[in-house]
């Protein structure tokens, strides 16, 4: 069973909650799908049993010895990545989308497409099971495809090790890597916080979860920072037909645990937050 932990807004506590779930009783697979800013490896220090190169698209490069320069490529490029001043063609690596069109239409075959090969996927073990995570090299795209690769690997590892539960720690936002994280997952846990931004982003996240028809639960983290807003979120959710399965109070213990490289469950199993997270986990597992 794949359980995705996501949030529209960043910094609501997604990874801390994923880490807590991953260290509860029972060995699990944890997959860090926030390939753009992977963090869980910091807590879990996994072994690297496998390292796989991920090709994150391509970038166009001009061979100036062959370039005439006619400037046709600049006319065809729809990403404003090619500029032509009459004497020289220049390609902006930042804007190039890697579509190959310029390399196909160049009459001199002067444009080569080079692979972006700096991104990696790692698979290994951590103290409570198996871990898979991706690291997208800065500035690279197609992060959704890397997320798919991480999930495929996680499923394979789960099968090989007879582990039933896969926790997917998702990226923030509602774009491509988020869609890749939730598509086909069994359940989605949306972590929000009682702020005006938290509520706005939750609404957009629920829209996306609905679009992909995934069973969703909401956790309101740091609920006591604004209990009126927490109640407002809870009411909004119940009117929308989404279940709020827990409100967690703000607890600096969660940060102290992170500093020590632990989840809150490992740091203080008897804390209120830990107790509530266990209750929440049981609800997620036992609700069909």
């Amino acid at each position: 069973m794949e359980i995705a932990v996501i949030s529209g807004k960043g910094g609501t506590g997604k990874s801390s909650i994923s880490a807590a779930f991953a260290t509860l009783n029972g060995r699990k697979v944890i997959a860090d799908c926030d390939v753009d800013a992977a963090n869980l490896y910091l807590l879990f220090n996994p072994t690297h049993e496998e390292e796989i190169i991920y090709i994150a698209g391509h970038k166009a490069h001009v061979n100036y010895e062959l370039c005439t320069p006619c400037g046709i490529c600049a006319n065809y490029c729809r990403f404003d990545a090619i500029s032509f001043n009459g004497a020289r063609v220049t390609i902006s690596e930042i804007s190039c989308d890697g579509c190959f069109l310029c390399s196909r239409i160049c009459p001199e075959n002067a444009i080569r497409m080079l692979q972006n090969d700096k991104s990696r996927m790692y698979s290994g073990s951590f103290r409570n099971g198996k871990m898979v995570y991706g690291r997208l090299a800065p500035g690279e795209e197609n992060s959704g495809k890397l997320v798919n690769m991480v999930r495929e690997k996680a499923k394979q590892v789960a099968g090989e090790n007879n582990l039933e539960i896969i926790i997917l720690d998702g990226p923030p936002g509602i774009g491509c890597p988020v869609i890749s994280t939730i598509t086909g997952a069994d359940k989605a846990v949306i972590v929000t916080e009682p702020t005006i931004s938290g509520l706005h982003d939750l609404q957009r996240t629920i829209e996306i979860v609905r679009k992909f028809d995934i069973k969703a639960f909401v956790i309101i983290n740091k609920c006591d920072l604004n209990s009126a807003m927490s109640d407002q979120i809870e009411t909004w959710c119940s009117n929308t037909g989404i279940k709020v399965i827990g409100q967690l109070p703000f607890d600096t213990g969660v940060v102290e645990a992170m500093v020590q490289g632990k989840s809150i469950i490992e740091y203080d199993i008897n804390s209120d937050v830990s107790r509530m997270i266990i209750e929440i986990w049981n609800k997620i597992i036992n609700t069909n």
Binding site: G10, D36, A37, I94, P138, G139
Partner: peptide, 14 residues
Amino acid sequence: SPPGTSCPFIQTVS
């Protein structure tokens, strides 16, 4: 800017 260090971030900060 959007969070992260991938495309959306680069497009903004560049």
